[in-house]
Design a binder for these strands. Sequence first.
DNA 1: GATGCTTACGATACCCGTAAAGATA
DNA 2: TATCTTTACGGGTATCGTAAGCATC
Lengths: 309, 309
Amino acid sequence: MNFQQLRILQEAKRRDFNFTEVANALFTSQSGVSKHIKDLEDELGIELFERKGKRILGLTPPGQQVQVFVERIVADMQNIRRVAENFANQNTGQLVVATTHTQARYALTKVVAEFKQRVPQVELALQQGSPQEIAQLLIRGDADIGIATERLTEMEDLACFPFYEWHHAVIVPNGHPLLQVVELTLSEIAKYPIVTYQEGYTGRALINKAFADCNLSPHVVLSALDADVIKAYVELGMGIGIVAPMAFDAKKDSDLKMLDCKHLFATNQSVIAVKKDKYLRGFAIELIQLCNAGLSTEHIRFAVEGATN
Amino acid sequence: MNFQQLRILQEAKRRDFNFTEVANALFTSQSGVSKHIKDLEDELGIELFERKGKRILGLTPPGQQVQVFVERIVADMQNIRRVAENFANQNTGQLVVATTHTQARYALTKVVAEFKQRVPQVELALQQGSPQEIAQLLIRGDADIGIATERLTEMEDLACFPFYEWHHAVIVPNGHPLLQVVELTLSEIAKYPIVTYQEGYTGRALINKAFADCNLSPHVVLSALDADVIKAYVELGMGIGIVAPMAFDAKKDSDLKMLDCKHLFATNQSVIAVKKDKYLRGFAIELIQLCNAGLSTEHIRFAVEGATN
DNA sequence: GATGCTTACGATACCCGTAAAGATA
DNA sequence: TATCTTTACGGGTATCGTAAGCATC
C-alpha cells in the first residue's frame, strides 16, 4: 500500500471511475493507474471496483468502506504539508476563499484589503460559486475557507463561525409610488413585479418564506445571481428589487432609493465555514479573525481540529 | 512522502527517539531510518526532530503537530487492512481483548465460550493488564477491545459501552465473628484487618472512598491483583477480604462465606471500551454484543466511527 | 470503430542494507 | 571508549511510461 494508490482510489471516485481521466488528473499513465489498483486489490485480497469485463462500474461494498479512510488519509497528508509550509514560510502561500458574489463584492472588500496589507505575500484566490458549490469545494479540500449566507451550517463536515447578520432591503427607482407608503408591508411590496436573487443565493429562501408565511405569491419577473444585475434591471423599470443592503451605495446608485425592511424579512446569518479536521495555516486564521474579531485562535483551532475527538 | 517514513516517525516517538531501536522495531536498518527522516525533512522543508549535533532530543514544534496527523494516517491504514480482512475472510482473524484479571477470570468466561462457539476460527487473545495499561494498549492500537471497571470512561479517545454493574462483597473464613453481626456496617468491617485489591484495580478506589466518607481508616494488611490471591490469604486467616462477588463460588470456596454489602459500597460499572475511529471487524462487534445484548451493530459503529464528524 | 482497461517490457529512480566516518556522553 | 547518527555506495526492486492486446459500447 502506498500513497499513490490511495490518491488513485480517491481520484477514481471523483472522476466517475474513468481510469484514463484519473491518469491525466494525476499526471501519470493509464497503465500505471490500472496496475496500482490491481496491486492494491491483490494486497488487500478483495476487489475494490465493481467490474463488468473490462468496464468499471463503481465501488464494491468493501471498496466504499475503504474509500472513507482513503479520503481521510489523503486529507491528512495535505494537513502535514500545510503544517510544514506554515513553519517553513510563515506568511507565504496560497489561500483559497470560496464565496458568493455578494460576499466577494461587498462584505469582503475591507477584509481582503486589510488581509493583503498584513500578509502581502499570500496569494489570495476568491473562488466564486453557489453555496452548494462552496460546500463541495470545502469538503473536497479545494478551498480553505468558505463564506456564504446559506446552507453551510447544515453540513455535518463543516465547522462554522458567525460573520455578520443582515436583512434584505427593497430598492426602487426614484419617484416610485412605494416611496410614498408610510408603513411598508409585504402585501404592499407584492403588488409590484419583483427582481431578486436566484434560488439558493443570498437568502432567497428567506424571501420566499416571508411571502409564503403571509400567503402572498409575489410576481418575480427576473431572478439573478448578483445585486449588480438586479439593480440594473430595477433602473430599467422592470420592477422593484429585493437585495442585500450592503449592495446599495447611495452615491453610485443615485437613480435608486433603498427602503429599509428589517421588520419584514427574517435575519440572514452570513457564516465563515471550514472543513473539519483541516489544518489551518496561520494566515487562514488571520483572515477568519478579520471577519470576526471576537474569535480567538484557540477557539477556531478547537472547533476545526478538536472535533476529531 | 511515503508510508514507511510516517511509520518511522510514529515509532521514533514511541521509542524515545532512538533510531537504532526504531530500525529494529520496523525490521530495517539504522541508516535507512536516518535517511528516510532526512528525506522527509527535506521534502517538507522543516526539521521534525530537535537535534544537538548528532543526538536526537525530541520533536520540534512543527514535528509535534505533524505527529498528530501521522498517528491518524497509520491508524487509518490499519483500518483499511481490517476492512479488507473483514470481507476477505469473514470469520477468521485475530481479536485482542485487553482486560483485567477479574474480568478475564470471572465475567468473561461465558462470553468467551459463546464467542468461540460462534466463530471458532478467530484467534482470541486475552491480554491482561491494569486499567491504565489497557487504555494504553487500546490507544496505541495494540488491542481491539478493552474491558475493565475503572478509568476507561474518562479517556477522551475511547468509546465506552456499559457491560454490567456490581458491588463489592466481604468474604470471611467460616466461623468469623462478622457472621453474627445482624446489620453490617463499614465501621464494623474496619475493625478487622483487610485483604483486598491493589490501587487502580477492580474498583479499589471506591472501597477507599467508602471508608474515607465515613472517616474510617481501615487496616489493609495485604493488597493483591486478583481475588484468587485475596481468597487464599483470607483462608489463611490474615484478615477479611473485600472482593468482587463474581469471584466467590459457594461450592469451591467452602471454607469461606460471602457477606452482601450492596448498601455499603458504591456501584461499580464495568465497561467495554474501543478506540474511537477504529474500524471494528464483524466478530469484534459480535463479542461486544455478547457482553451487552442491548447494543445494536449500528449503535456501536456510530459511537466508534461516527465520532469522526 | 472508438473508447477504455489490461498486460508486457524496458528504463529509470527509489529503497534498502553494509560499511565507514563523525559526533556525543 | 561505547553508543548512536550521518554519509557514502552498490545491489535489488518497484515504479513509470510506451506500446501492444483486447473487451465493451
